[in-house]
């Protein structure tokens, strides 16, 4: 709040007046507490101190807040970068002097949608595996659910092949949540590599999925760890990734705020000296924004979908 006249007379600033009453109040309360473990006399002293401090404090703020003027000391503070000494190559005024990246990206929500779609897709290979190998669709589901039910750890194959409602529910929750979260994580990382969602998702998502969920599941669910069929598992993962990437790619990219900083010509064509900027790197200390990530817009081609 820059209200009640923080500016005093002339070249001074009004600041709250120093006061010992807050400290006295704190001491009073502490003494009351200390009285509870030592002697009532201490508490009585504390009480007296508390009351006095309350009055004192009150008079600091009412009817008027106490202020003191503090003189502003003339002092020159120069603000300049220590690193502007190197002359930067002169560019056309319109060219962004730093790498501006990425100009277009996907929304985080698209990552979540991708995660959901991928989660659905993943059930297909898993289901096929389950039916082919154990002749029951429920096997895979129960296997996943066993993570939640510790007493299922020693269950037989026959048991796992039957339908169990709680198994179905638990598996739905576990699988749904994991897909959602992997999607979210993926969505948050999308701006780092907005170009080829299908490749990155097909590659990254299985990595994440394996990393997050199943490394933990080794311990969480020994039963799953014992019985897991790795080729099929990886197949389901890839299905997840590809579909996730495909779904993300269906969505239009949105322009990041960086877009406005481009010149009109660049905005119209979207394929100008950004590429050239890539090579002619200026003093790296000048680049304020995400260096290192790929320019989102190297050629005009990414609109019609990479891959």
């Amino acid at each position: 709040m820059h209200d009640d006249a923080t500016h005093g007379q002339g070249n001074s600033v009004l600041l709250p007046r120093p006061t010992a009453w807050p400290m006295a109040l704190a001491l009073g309360l502490s003494l009351i507490f200390a009285g509870m473990v030592t002697n009532v006399a201490v508490a009585a002293l504390g009480l007296a101190m508390t009351l006095a401090a309350c009055v004192g404090w009150f008079r600091q703020v009412l009817p008027h807040e106490a202020h003191v003027p503090v003189a502003v000391i003339a002092e020159e503070v120069e603000i300049a970068s220590a690193r502007t000494l190197i002359q930067r190559p002169q560019r056309s005024a319109s060219a962004a002097p730093r790498k501006v990246l990425p100009v277009e990206t996907f929304l985080i929500g698209n990552g979540i949608r991708g995660g959901i779609a991928g989660g659905l897709a993943m059930t297909v290979p898993a289901g096929i595996f389950s039916v082919l190998k154990y002749h029951s669709f429920w096997y895979a589901i129960n296997l996943l659910a066993a993570g939640g039910f510790v007493d299922w750890a020693s269950a037989s194959n026959a048991f796992l092949c039957q339908f169990h409602l709680q198994g179905l529910l638990a598996a739905l929750v576990i699988h749904g949540l994991t897909s959602l979260l992997v999607g979210l994580l993926y969505g948050a990382m999308l701006p780092m590599f907005p170009r080829y969602p299908i490749v990155t998702a097909g590659f990254m998502a299985p990595l994440l999925m394996t990393g997050i969920m199943f490394s933990a599941l080794n311990i969480l669910s020994p039963i799953l760890n014992q019985r897991i069929d790795w080729p099929w598992f990886i197949l389901s993962q890839i299905a997840f990734g590809l579909v996730c990437g495909y779904v993300v790619n269906l969505h239009a990219k949105v322009r990041t705020p960086q877009f406005q900083a481009l010149s009109f010509a660049e905005r119209a064509g979207l394929h100008s000296n950004l590429v050239e900027l890539d090579g002619s790197q200026a003093d790296p200390s000048q680049t304020g924004v995400q260096r290192g990530t790929q320019p989102g817009t190297k050629n005009g081609d990414k609109e019609d979908g990479a891959l």
Binding site: A74, E75, E76, E78
Partner: peptide, 21 residues
């Protein structure tokens, strides 16, 4: 005078914040 980070504001919009009380 210590120079502080003053950048002339483009739009001179009122700067109102909630009451601290």
């Amino acid at each position: 005078m210590s120079q502080t980070a003053v950048i002339p504001q483009t739009a001179n919009e009122a700067w109102i914040l909630p009451s601290r009380g």
